[in-house]
Amino acid sequence: MSGQHRLGPLPDDWTLPAVEAVNRAWFTSGAITLQQCAGCGTLQHPPEEICHVCGAMTFSPRAVAPTGIVHSYTVVHHSVHPSLDRAVPYAVVLVALDGAPGLRVVGNLLGVPVDEVAIGLPVVATWEELPPTDGEPLLLPQWQRQDQLPQQT
């Protein structure tokens, strides 16, 4: 997959998440897979090593609906790293998940001109297949408008 080009606004050589035990499901499952506490059932994101409600340290993966609403966003115009000089302007969105009230996920909004990004847009997840960073292929969650087809990037 080394020839893969990123779907989003960021360059192929941009930073990727390190896959660790705590986030393996999130970054490799190809679903909106949240941490569900084995003790009390609480869903939490970002994943942590301990449940913030009951203190249990074991979790099971729980996939929720891959849809949400743009809760906030910014359009980045000023490049803060030489690798991003040609990526700007790009939008970063904070998506409130339909399937987990109160939980939010950061991503890029693909295929939408930056001046059309708005709070309240309904979005649906898609996944960027990226080369393995720590042994497994990475499936990085990203977002598209619900009224756009996945291919329209």
């Binding site: 941009w14 990727l16 986030n23 980045v76 803060v80 790293h81």
Partner: peptide
Amino acid sequence: AYTAPYGMLSPA
């Protein structure tokens, strides 16, 4: 890990 891959990294 949840922000930098999306180009969200500076205080601004």
